[in-house]
């Protein structure tokens, strides 16, 4: 197991007089190469949780293990952890700062203290992985389109060659095609490079297509961790947490409620289509 959280708590106490229990008793483990979808409504603690994974936030109590090592142990190299657990924040294009696309992506590996050639090689590879062509390497990152900027920013993290890639709503603000492009790229990284992916998202329709398991956060607690099928079968509970299941899940469940004999665990369009065709005997 690659990442293990053991009863992790984080109590936030700044600014206001009231301490806030941002995440409560979180325990889980993630295997190498898994694709995890992390869902929960705004303020449920998702962002706080993922920042624990690369040590940006230190837990108030509890233990976190990465590749078998306790990251809170003395002498544990947190900067190295950050290169192994890559974290792409929401609207990552806002962190671009260099004069050219290529230089910006080199920033990460350079911070790891690698030699120049290696850094540039990694940057080049990373840009290839996200589909940025050679013609854009010398462009200013500020002149790119929204989708391109975002891919450059993701490359900036990939260039550190992480084993785990965490993305906080990587499709926010993009149009449908831009969204599909990014998701396809992430799926490809997962498939071809064997990266462990943790994807934070609000789009149930999207995550159902990709994730092996879904983690559901509510009020700082990890309330479900299971496959999309199982999680979405609890769609009524999800609604209580201000979440929803994909539209097709609703279609199947309403059909069943109306007395038709259908299997309700369809979570993607293809699955729902098969089920309905079966029902209509095509």
């Amino acid at each position: 197991m690659q990442i293990i959280f053991d009863k992790v708590n984080y109590i936030y106490s700044g600014g206001t007089a009231f301490a806030r229990h941002a995440i409560k008793d979180i325990s889980f483990s993630i295997n190498k190469g898994e694709f995890i979808g992390l869902i929960g409504h705004t303020g449920s603690g998702k962002s706080t949780l993922i920042q624990h994974m690369n040590g940006l936030i230190k837990a108030t109590n509890g233990h976190i293990y990465f590749n078998g090592q306790d990251i809170y142990e003395k002498n544990y190299d947190l900067r190295k952890l950050r290169s192994k657990v890559g974290l792409v924040f929401q609207y990552p294009e806002h962190q671009l700062f260099e004069t050219t696309v290529f230089k910006d992506v080199v920033f990460g590996p350079t911070n790891l203290g690698l030699d120049k050639l290696e850094c540039e090689l990694r940057a080049y590879e990373a840009l290839k992985m996200v589909g940025i062509g050679d013609d854009l390497l010398d462009a200013s990152p500020f002149e790119l389109s929204g989708g391109q900027k975002r891919r450059v920013a993701i490359a900036g993290v990939l260039a550190m060659k992480p084993e785990v890639l965490i993305l906080d709503e990587p499709t926010a603000g993009l149009d449908p095609r831009g969204r599909d492009d990014i998701l396809e790229k992430i799926a490809e990284l997962h498939r071809d490079s064997g990266l462990t992916i943790i994807l934070v998202t609000h789009s149930m329709e999207d995550i159902a297509n990709y994730a092996d398991r879904l983690f559901v956060m509510n009020r700082g607690e990890l309330v479900m961790q299971d496959t999309a099928k199982v999680v979405f079968s609890h769609y009524k509970e999800l609604e209580q947490m201000h979440l929803a299941a994909p539209q097709v899940t609703y279609v199947m469940n309403v059909l069943k409620d109306k007395g038709y004999r259908v299997n309700t665990d369809a979570t993607t369009i293809d699955e729902a289509k098969e089920e309905i065709l079966k029902l209509l005997q095509y």
Partner: peptide, 8 residues
């Protein structure tokens, strides 16, 4: 934080 995540 975003830059720290890139090793800054």
């Amino acid at each position: 934080k975003a830059q720290m995540a890139r090793g800054a």
